[in-house]
Design a binder for these strands. Structure first.
Lengths: 219, 219
DNA sequence: CTAGTTAATTGTAATTTGCAAGTAACATTT
DNA sequence: AAATGTTACTTGCAAATTACAATTAACTAG
């Protein structure tokens, strides 16, 4: 290769999803450095060639720095690039999205969650990243156990049902949902564990060992 | 940011799919430059910060350079990174995959197609890229009109049926396939155009104007 | 004009899904 | 302790979808 070839800045940005008040939300961070210092944006940072095994590790570092732990689910989303996305010039951002149960967040972190439908204006091309992340989540929710990662380790069937509806953005039949989910074996009942309240106790479930299970589909 | 921060090499690699002799194949290129000069590999190249609007444009340039035209279907696949994937050190490769009908290739290009199931050993992490590209193609074939881009502009129902079976790697019921495809409206019949032979002529179809249509799914 | 071959349709059983109503199991109130 | 409210869960059945198998259609070649 030509030794004089200029190489672009390489960074990662993360869309961190959680569910708060029955709504799909994102965790935003106020930027510490220019450009856009002080502005709310997706948590992100440069890839550290000296330390990071790959961009996924850079994304995990960004997330740990933001919330203090590793996200239960993390997946590469898309790589955004071009001369216009960052005022410093041609750059590449490898975008990741992650799913985090609200119960893992502390109060100050919960205060930084914003409904995906009502985000403040975001710098760079972060709105585009969010749009694509939401689309990916919706899409995967229709044929995999992905939304379960938005819940804590133990959850009821109705909680799972609501999370799916939120993720997909549509109503799902209760009985059919129950049937399909149990049939697919993506969750398993916890014997003798129930969520109690002023009504009939609800069976508790957890994700089955086979982490992310795609549903069966046909053409 | 720290002005001394070292930035990695940024390149694109492309998995170019086509169907030859009823088999899913990839177009490989012999590398002109070191490392691995003379070795068969996925067509690729560096991102030219001065010329490329984004990595997709770099991928299009690579493909034009290889086959002489733009691929009917091109999609970003995944971004691979790390210190080990290239002997020159930490690098990033934005991988794309494309679908190209065999009929668009000339003889010398057809000679460079290799069955996806029997590829020669590939340098860098290209085997991993291929594996992921095949998986993506299989996955999308089950719920979209993607495989149609492996066919020329006009095709019969049976040709489409076979392409889907090859892409997915499983048998599909003829009648159900026909039903579903026509119902979804992803293709349209060409009135009075038929493929003739020593048997009943087959209706010719083309992709409907709505390019890539995802099928409807339910949970 | 018959045999051979591929295209396309039809019919039906099995399965899946959508909708709606009913039963179960609590806590709280009377 | 019985009635009430609320949420959990199951059942039943109609409607839609899919799998399987057989049949009919349209051509060419001999």
């Amino acid at each position: 290769m030509e030794p004089s070839m200029r190489q672009p800045l390489v960074m990662v940005d993360t869309a961190l999803f959680t569910i708060r008040d029955e709504r799909l939300c994102l965790i935003l961070a106020r930027r510490q450095e220019p450009p856009f210092a002080g502005v709310l944006a997706l948590p992100g940072g440069f890839v550290h060639v000296e330390e990071d095994a790959d961009t996924a590790m850079a994304a995990r570092r960004v997330i740990r720095h933001k919330v203090g732990f590793d996200a239960p689910y993390l997946e590469q989303l898309f790589t955004f690039s071009g001369p216009a996305r960052d005022p410093r010039g041609w750059s590449v951002s490898v975008a990741y999205y992650a799913l985090i149960p609200l119960s893992l967040l502390d109060q100050s972190q919960v205060a930084e969650t914003w409904p995906a439908e009502a985000l403040p204006p975001l710098p760079f091309d972060h709105s585009q990243i969010v749009a694509q992340a939401v689309e990916r989540l919706r899409s995967k929710a229709t044929y995999s156990s992905l939304p379960a990662f938005l819940l804590p380790g133990e959850f009821t069937m109705n909680e799972l049902h609501r999370i799916y509806e939120q993720s997909i953005g549509a109503r799902l039949d209760k009985a059919s949902f129950r049937h399909k989910i149990l049939e697919q074996g993506i969750i398993e009942a916890l014997p003798d564990r129930f969520r109690v309240g002023a009504h009939r106790p609800a069976q508790l479930y957890r994700l089955a060992s086979t982490a992310l299970t795609p549903f069966e589909r046909k053409i």
